[in-house]
Design a binder for these strands. Structure first.
Lengths: 214, 214
DNA sequence: TAGATTGTTAATCGATTAACAATC
DNA sequence: TAGATTGTTAATCGATTAACAATC
């Protein structure tokens, strides 16, 4: 049963599966059951089997899933079997940090261009990349086949930058600015605003009592 | 109807409401209906009314919600009406960036201590804060009344750091390391690993066609 | 009063989990 | 063969949405 409509909930779990599988691979585990995966992730084993079954029959009855094979398959599903080129807009502290975060390359996501609207930043170097001015954005997106843009500018500039990215033909946006972005349906916008995570964390601090009465 | 069991989905939306309300406040909007909020957030108005009604009767029939009042109320619900003290562990690039991100103070979340296990970092300054060695962690948590720890160390050190935080009596953890942390039920762990966001974004890039057939 | 909008119940929708035949 | 575990259907659970009486 291939390619029905896959829910966001399922897609969000795929990277988690990948992460745990990679850890198992390092530990040279060859085979894993949905039971074990469920234990490692605190997920229901049936859910894991169902999630994976949306995309194909990857397991073997009586045995489980072969770690290497499943990693390959999930990478294919996520489309990170080929390199995806990424642009970063906003060469501030956070932008710097993300550029240096070399985790990407391992996942075949590569930041290949950095932009900033502030003249003082343009021309400086981050991690071998020369910071470019905003008016080169559209051109660079096309030339370098960039598909994702990461926004690390202040909230009040985020929508303007998003518009420029969309104008330039970007396909997806990862937004770190604490504001809601408007974008057409074809452009996927993902939010990575940790201030919101921090706020929901605050909620649970003083509401622990209620939680425990479950 | 106060304090039933509130679902995670509801709690995750509260910071979003707060954000939009703050934007409305800046624009000096006095009153807003669930209809308008729903439009701004792409949420169903009934959902917004229901979410808010879990915590009290904040609106007025025929009129809507008073912006200032609702902001206050949500801040109370999230418990950010008083300052929450936060420790950051891992004085690398990302740690630096988060420290400088002054958004916190506005939300009454304040990073008041920074730690690193690497001797070379200890004693250096980030944003007026002197980086402390790990063996001072537990003491500082108690002395400074720190309730939340932010982990920005490499993945392979994250669990060790988490254990030290838990040992020290931390109540919540925001984890930026791309690994799953084990923690007792009393300690809330929130993940802020943007590499996962990036991977699910990748999925949608090449699966747009299917999406559009809805 | 008429129009607008809440709070809340009931209906719907979708996601998670249990169960089990198929089979390695 | 006996034990384990998948893929999948059916049952359950929970979250979202529609609808509407109450009321500003």
């Amino acid at each position: 049963m291939k390619q029905a409509k896959i829910s966001d909930a399922v897609v969000k779990r795929l990277p988690l599966y990948l992460q745990v599988l990679n850890e198992l691979k390092v530990r040279e585990v060859k085979t894993v059951s949905s039971q074990e995966l469920g234990h490692l992730l605190d997920f229901n084993p049936a859910q894991i089997r169902k999630d994976l079954a949306y995309f194909g029959d990857f397991g073997r009855k009586g045995i489980g899933y072969e770690v290497d094979y499943l990693i390959d398959k999930i990478r294919q599903i996520l489309k990170i079997d080929q390199t995806i080129y990424v642009a970063l807009i906003g060469a501030g502290n956070l932008g710097h940090a993300l550029c240096n975060y070399n985790k990407y390359s391992k996942d075949n996501m590569q930041i290949v261009a950095v932009f900033d609207s502030y003249e003082g930043k343009v021309g400086t170097k981050i991690n071998n990349l020369v910071v470019q001015p905003m008016d080169e954005l559209a051109d660079t997106i096309k030339k370098m086949n960039i598909r994702i843009g990461i926004i690390t500018v202040p909230a009040h500039e985020a929508q303007t930058v998003a518009n420029q990215l969309i104008e330039g033909g970007i396909e997806g946006i990862l937004n770190f600015a604490p504001t809601i972005l408007r974008a057409p349906d074809e452009v996927r916008v993902q939010h990575a605003d940790f201030t919101k995570e921090l706020l929901s964390l605050a909620y649970y601090l003083n509401h622990k009592e209620e939680e425990n009465n479950e």
